[in-house]
Write a protein that binds this DNA or RNA. Structure first.
Length: 892
DNA sequence: ATTTTCACG
DNA sequence: ACGTACGTGAAAATG
C-alpha cells in the first residue's frame, strides 16, 4: 500500500466551518466571549474525517496575508472580497492550535496562497509515489487532480465532501480534464477572485472551445481560423486578459519551500493534551466524548460517581421506602432493542433526586403492589424518556401508566425537530448534562451487544439515566414555556402519545393466508418475467442490480442514456418509461420491478412482522422524528401500503377486522393542505373556492387559464392546475413544475406568475414566511410547532433555496399534521364517551382507519367526519369523506 | 454504511 | 449562472 499524504486548505475550510455554523454564532462562545463556531465545526471535521483516515503525512496550509505574487500581478486580485468577519479572525490562532493538537503540522508562506503550498507538496508527494488527498472548499484546486491526487470538495458544511478523481472531474466539467480547468478559468474569469477572463464567455462556451482546441495556447494559435463572430472579436481583444487570468488561476507546483514531506509526519491526536484546550473553549460535548473514551478521567471522576445520587437496589426490605416516593418521580425501563412490542426488558430505575432512586433487573418488581400502584397513581407525576415506549412496555406487564408529566424526548423534539437522538446520553448532552454514559459504552453494539452481568455497572447506568430525566424535566419544560409551546406539548403531543400507544397495542389483523396466496401468484409472475428478460438479453444477470441493468441497457443494448446518478446510469422509472418505445424489454423490466416490490416489501416484508400470537401487525409510530410534525410509521411502515395501482392495492385485501361481522372504516380529509393554505394566507379567491365547495383544481385551472365561471375545464388543464397546486404547497419553482407536467420552463414560469396574480394572498404569504424564516431562523405551524432552518441564509444557492422551499412547505404540511393529531385525540375520547367498540387502528397523514362492528357503522359515519372536521375552526371549512368495507381494500 | 429505487401522503 | 419540487421507510445491491 502506498503511503498517504493528506493536504488541507486551512483558510477555505475555516470559512466553510464558520458559515456552516453561522446561525449559531452568538450562542457558541466560551467563557471569555470568544466565538467558537468555526472551531467546533473544524474540530468536527478533524475528528470525523482526518483522524479516522490516519494518513502517514498531513499538512494544513494557511494563507499568509493579503499580499501575494498574484496581487503583484493584478492589484485588484481578490479585491472584491469582503473582509473576513472579525468573529472568524479571532478564531484563527486557536484553529492552528487545534490542528497541532490533532497531530497535524500547520504551514504558511508569505507571498503565496495556501493553494500554492498544497500544489507544490501534492506534486512532490505524488512524485515520491504517495497517494495524495487534498481537502478544500474551493473548486479551483480541481486542476491538481490526477491519477495520484484526489481532491475532496466540501458539499455541505465541512463533513460532507464530494470526491474528485480524474473521471469525476471530466464528469463535472462535461468532458474537460483536470488539466483544462485552468484554461477554463482563463476564459471565464472568476468573480470571487476578481479576475476578468474573456468578455461574454461563460462555462458553456469555454467548455465548448476547450473541447475543440484542448488548450488556451492552441486556441489562440488558431483563433484566426474561427469563423467571424462577436465571440471571435472578444477572444482577440481580450487575449492579454485571458493569459493573465490563466496565470492567476494556475496553482503553483514549484514553490521553493523550506519544508518537505519528511517534516509533516502525522502524529495522531493528542487526546490527553486536548482536554485542557477543550475546557478552555468550553467544548462540553467533546469533553464528554473524550471522557467516555477514557481520557481526562481525573478531572471528571467526581461527576461519574456522583455521591449526590442516592441509589438503592430494590429488595423486600426497602420496598417501604419505594412506597414512600411522592410528588414527582422519574422512571426509566430499559430494553434490548427499540421495538418495544417485542424487545426484552433488562431492568428499570425509579425515584427522584431528593428521595433517592431504586433500581432492579427483574421487571417482576414492577408487578408488586408497591411499584404498580406508584406507576398507576394519578397523584404522582412521572417524568420519562419516551412515554409511548413506557406505556406499551408496561401494558405488556399489565400495568397502566398514569399521570405522565414530562417526556423529555417529546419535549426536546418540539423545542427543536433536529433533535434526532436515540439515547438519553445524547439528549442530555444537548442540554449540557454530561453525567450519562452512552449505551454503546455500556452495552456495546452489533455482535458485541451484551447486558453487563455486573450489577454495579448496569445499575449505575440505569440510575444515571433516570437521574438525567429527573434533572432535564424542569429544563425542557422551562424551554417549552419560553417557546410558547406548552399548549402544543400538553394539549396535543402528550395526549397523542397515549392515543398512539393504544393504537399500536391494538394493532391491525392480517389475513396471512390471503397474503401468501397473493405471494405465490407474484412469485410465478416474477419467474415468467425473469425468463422473458433473460431470453431477450441473451444472458442472465441480476435484474435488481441497477449497475448490471445499466450495463445491459446502455452498454450492451446501446440505449440512449437519459440520466446519470453519481455512481453510474440511472435506471429509475421515469428513465425506463422514456426508453420503453425503443426496446420491448424495458416494459418487462418495469413490470418485474413493480411485481418484485410487491412481493419483497409487501408480501414477504409484512408476513415477517405479523405477530404469531394474535395474527396482527403492531407498527410503531415515530412521534419525534419528522421535521414537519407528521408521524412516521416503522416496523413495518403502514403508511405506504400500495393504493395507486390496482395490482398493488390488492395487498389491502389482507388487512381485515379482528372479529367476524366487523368492518374496516376509513375517513380522510379532502385537500387538507390546500385548505390550510387558504386559511393561513387569507387569500380571498382560494378561500371562496373552498367556501363554495368547488372542485379546487378546476377552480385553479379557470383562474390560471383565464376561463369564465361556467366554461368547462378540460382534463389536461385540470391536470396542470393540480400540479401547480402541489407546487405551491411544496415551495414552487418553475423548473420543478416544468418537470412535473412536461412543459417548457418559461411556460411553467408564466403559469406560476399567473397563479400569483390570481391568488395575491398566497403570493404575499409565501414571501412573508420566507422573510420571517430569514429573520428568526425558524418557521411555525398553527399550533406553534417550530422548525429551524439554519440554511435559510446560506451562501450556497442550493442550500438556501432548499431552506426557502422548506419555509413555505413546513407551516402547511405541519399545520395539517397538527389538525389530524387533534382530531385523533378527540376521536379517542368520543369513542369512549359513546361507549363504542370501534377501535382507531391507523393514521396515514390525512386519514384515519378504524375497525368496528357492522352495527356501529352508521354511528361512525356521522361521528368520525364530525370530529375530524371540527378539530379546529379555520376560515374555510374542512371536508371529510368516509368509506367502509370488509377489508381495507374495500374501504374506498 | 451508503446508494438506488419505489411505495405512500 | 447556479440546479431543484415537500415529507417519509424498506429492500436490495454494493463498497
Amino acid at each position: 500500500m502506498a503511503k498517504t499524504l493528506l493536504l488541507i486548505d486551512g483558510n477555505s475550510l475555516a470559512f466553510r466551518a464558520f458559515y456552516a455554523m453561522h446561525s449559531q454564532l452568538e450562542r457558541m462562545k466560551n467563557q471569555d466571549g470568544l466565538h467558537t463556531n468555526a472551531l467546533v465545526a473544524f474540530n468536527n471535521f478533524l475528528d470525523t474525517l482526518v483522524d479516522p483516515m490516519q494518513p502517514d503525512y498531513c499538512l494544513v496550509a494557511w494563507d499568509a496575508g493579503k499580499t501575494t505574487f498574484r496581487t503583484e500581478k493584478l492589484d485588484s486580485y481578490k479585491g472584491s472580497r469582503q473582509s473576513t468577519p472579525p468573529e472568524l479572525v479571532e478564531q484563527f490562532p486557536y484553529l492552528r492550535q487545534l490542528v497541532e493538537l490533532h497531530g497535524i503540522t500547520s504551514y504558511e508562506l508569505p507571498g503565496y496562497e495556501a493553494d500554492d503550498i498544497i500544489g507544490t507538496i501534492a506534486k512532490a508527494g505524488a512524485q515520491e509515489g504517495l497517494a495524495v488527498t487534498i481537502v478544500t472548499g474551493d473548486r479551483d484546486l480541481l486542476q491538481l487532480v490526477d491519477e495520484n491526487i484526489t481532491v475532496l470538495v466540501t458539499k455541505k458544511g465541512v463533513t460532507e465532501l464530494e470526491t474528485f478523481d480524474p473521471a469525476a472531474v471530466i464528469e463535472k466539467y462535461d468532458g474537460l480534464t483536470a488539466a483544462q480547468v485552468v484554461d477554463m478559468k482563463a476564459l471565464t474569469g472568476d468573480t470571487a477572485d476578481n479576475y476578468p477572463g474573456v468578455t461574454k464567455i461563460g462555462p458553456v462556451t469555454a467548455i465548448k472551445l476547450l473541447k475543440e482546441w484542448q488548450t488556451l495556447e492552441n486556441l489562440y494559435d488558431n483563433v484566426e481560423s474561427l469563423k467571424k463572430s462577436k465571440m471571435k472579436d472578444n477572444l482577440i481583444n481580450d487575449r492579454e486578459q485571458a493569459f493573465m487570468s490563466q496565470d492567476l488561476a494556475r496553482i503553483r507546483t514549484d514553490v521553493a519551500l523550506p519544508i518537505g514531506i519528511a517534516d509533516i509526519n502525522y502524529r495522531g491526536a493528542d487526546y490527553e493534551g486536548i482536554v485542557p484546550f477543550y475546557q478552555m473553549l468550553n467544548f462540553k460535548q467533546q469533553l464528554a466524548k473524550l471522557h467516555a473514551a477514557g481520557y481526562g478521567k481525573e478531572a471528571n471522576e467526581a461527576t461519574q460517581n456522583n455521591p449526590a445520587i442516592k441509589m438503592q437496589v430494590i429488595t423486600e426490605a426497602n420496598l417501604a421506602q419505594v412506597a414512600a416516593l411522592e410528588g414527582e418521580i422519574s422512571f426509566y425501563l430499559e430494553t434490548t432493542s427499540p421495538n418495544y412490542h417485542i424487545s426484552e426488558m433488562v431492568g428499570f430505575a425509579i425515584g427522584n433526586a431528593t428521595q433517592g432512586y431504586f433500581v432492579a433487573r427483574s421487571v417482576d418488581w414492577l408487578l408488586t403492589p408497591v411499584l404498580s400502584n406508584l406507576l398507576t397513581s394519578p397523584a404522582i407525576k412521572k417524568n420519562v424518556y419516551n412515554a409511548k415506549a413506557a406505556l406499551v412496555l408496561l401494558n405488556r406487564l399489565g400495568i397502566k401508566l398514569v399521570n405522565v408529566a414530562t417526556d423529555i424526548i417529546l419535549a426536546a423534539y418540539l423545542l427543536d425537530t433536529n433533535t434526532n437522538v436515540d439515547d438519553i446520553d445524547e439528549l442530555a448532552q444537548q442540554f449540557d448534562y454530561y453525567d450519562v454514559e452512552s449505551d454503546e459504552a455500556i452495552y456495546g453494539k452489533g455482535a458485541k451487544f451484551a447486558i453487563p452481568t455486573d450489577d454495579d455497572i448496569l445499575f449505575k447506568h440505569l440510575v444515571n439515566k433516570v437521574h438525567a430525566i429527573d434533572q432535564l424535566a424542569p429544563k425542557v419544560t422551562a424551554k417549552l414555556i419560553e417557546h410558547e409551546q406548552l399548549p402544543l406539548y400538553e394539549s396535543i403531543e402528550l395526549p397523542l402519545t397515549h392515543v398512539l400507544a393504544a393504537m399500536e397495542i391494538t394493532g391491525i389483523t392480517v389475513d396471512t393466508e390471503q397474503l401468501r396466496a397473493q405471494g405465490s401468484k407474484l412469485v410465478e409472475r416474477l419467474s415468467e418475467l425473469e425468463q422473458a428478460i433473460y431470453r431477450q438479453v441473451g444472458e442472465e444477470f441480476n435484474i435488481q442490480s441497477p449497475k448490471q441493468l445499466g450495463e445491459i441497457l446502455f452498454e450492451k443494448m446501446k440505449l440512449p442514456v437519459i440520466k446519470k446518478t453519481k455512481t453510474g446510469y440511472s435506471t429509475a422509472v421515469d428513465v425506463l418509461e422514456k426508453l420503453a418505445p425503443e426496446a420491448p424489454i424495458v416494459e418487462d423490466i418495469l413490470q418485474y420491478r413493480q411485481v418484485a416490490k410487491l412481493q419483497q416489501t409487501y408480501i414477504e416484508g409484512l408476513l415477517k412482522v405479523v405477530h404469531s400470537t394474535d395474527s396482527k401487525i403492531h407498527t410503531r409510530y415515530m412521534q419525534t422524528l419528522t421535521q414537519t410534525g407528521r408521524l412516521s410509521s416503522v416496523d413495518p411502515n403502514l403508511q405506504n401500503i400500495p393504493i395507486r395501482l390496482e395490482e398493488g392495492r390488492k395487498i389491502r385485501q389482507a388487512f381485515v377486522p379482528s372479529h367476524p361481522d366487523w368492518q374496516i372504516f376509513g375517513a380522510d380529509y379532502s385537500q387538507i393542505e390546500l385548505r390550510v393554505l387558504a386559511h393561513i394566507t387569507g387569500d380571498e379567491h382560494l378561500q371562496a373556492a373552498f367556501k363554495e365547495d368547488d372542485d379546487i383544481h378546476a377552480a385553479t385551472a379557470r383562474r390560471i387559464f383565464g376561463l369564465s365561471k361556467d366554461e368547462p375545464v378540460d382534463g389536461n388543464m385540470r391536470r396542470k392546475a393540480k400540479a401547480v397546486n402541489f407546487g405551491i404547497v411544496y415551495g414552487i419553482s418553475d423548473f420543478g413544475l416544468s418537470q412535473s407536467i412536461g412543459v417548457s420552463r418559461p411556460e411553467a414560469k408564466k403559469m406560476i406568475e399567473t397563479y400569483f396574480e390570481q391568488y395575491p394572498g398566497v403570493d404575499a404569504w409565501l414571501k412573508s414566511v420566507v422573510a420571517e424564516a430569514k429573520l428568526n431562523g425558524y418557521v411555525e405551524t398553527l399550533s406553534k410547532r417550530r422548525r429551524y432552518l439554519p440554511e435559510i441564509n446560506a451562501k450556497s444557492f442550493n442550500l438556501r433555496s432548499f431552506a426557502e422551499r422548506t419555509a413555505m412547505n413546513t407551516p402547511i404540511q405541519g399545520s395539517a399534521a397538527d389538525i389530524i393529531k387533534l382530531a385523533m385525540i378527540n376521536m379517542q375520547t368520543a369513542l369512549q364517551e359513546h361507549g363504542l367498540q370501534a377501535k382507531m387502528l391507523l393514521q396515514v397523514h390525512d386519514e384515519l382507519i378504524f375497525e368496528a362492528p357492522t352495527s356501529e357503522i352508521a354511528t361512525l359515519e356521522a361521528l368520525v367526519p364530525k370530529i375530524m372536521d371540527s378539530a379546529v375552526t379555520l376560515d374555510v371549512p374542512l371536508k371529510v369523506e368516509s368509506h367502509y368495507g370488509p377489508t381495507w381494500f374495500d374501504a374506498k
